[in-house]
Nucleic acid binder design. Structure first.
Lengths: 75, 75
DNA sequence: TTAATCGACCGACTATAGTCATCATAAAGA
DNA sequence: TCTTTATGATGACTATAGTCGGTCGATTAA
């Protein structure tokens, strides 16, 4: 699986786990609502600061999320 | 410490550990010579696919590198 | 001295991240 | 049915990632 697709899947999973809508997540990490959707649909790739701010809201360490991305990506 | 600065420091450390020049690293991960320098000087932030391709060349798992960035960043 | 290597830095460029306004649609509830 | 909530989607925009060609100074070796 592609990196962006893997990231999108992991992001969606953790957003749901946190019980947040795309809009709620976007507001809390100071990003645009549509952009969260684009990330989940693998049409954008986050920079690492974006990754860190999303993870802060989702209360997960960035390296843990990345570890899940690696797994889906297959490395 | 800022995220980009933390990342630049970690990148430089691991590039040195791998015994590569900025240019050698750039060639192997199909990026520009000057861009590696910009990353190390914290004037650019990588996307996650860029992160993954750099880590592949440096033979380190992305989540391990991110863990070091977290530590320097202070989370 | 000369040549080679390395890294900082620059200006200008192309590609893509991230914003914003807006419309469409499907699901759930009053 | 009417309304609200969540999401998909699009087009146009601004900001920044990433490229390219080059200069410069420091270092190291011939």
């Amino acid at each position: 699986m592609e990196i962006s697709k893997a990231f999108g899947n992991v992001l969606k999973k953790h957003r749901k786990l946190a019980g947040l809508s795309q809009e709620q997540l976007a507001l809390q990490c100071d990003l645009d609502r549509t952009y969260i959707g684009l990330l989940e649909r693998a049409q954008r790739q986050p920079s690492i600061t974006t990754l860190f701010s999303i993870c802060e809201v989702l209360k997960i360490k960035p390296h843990e999320l990345i570890k899940e991305v690696e797994k889906l990506y297959g490395i």
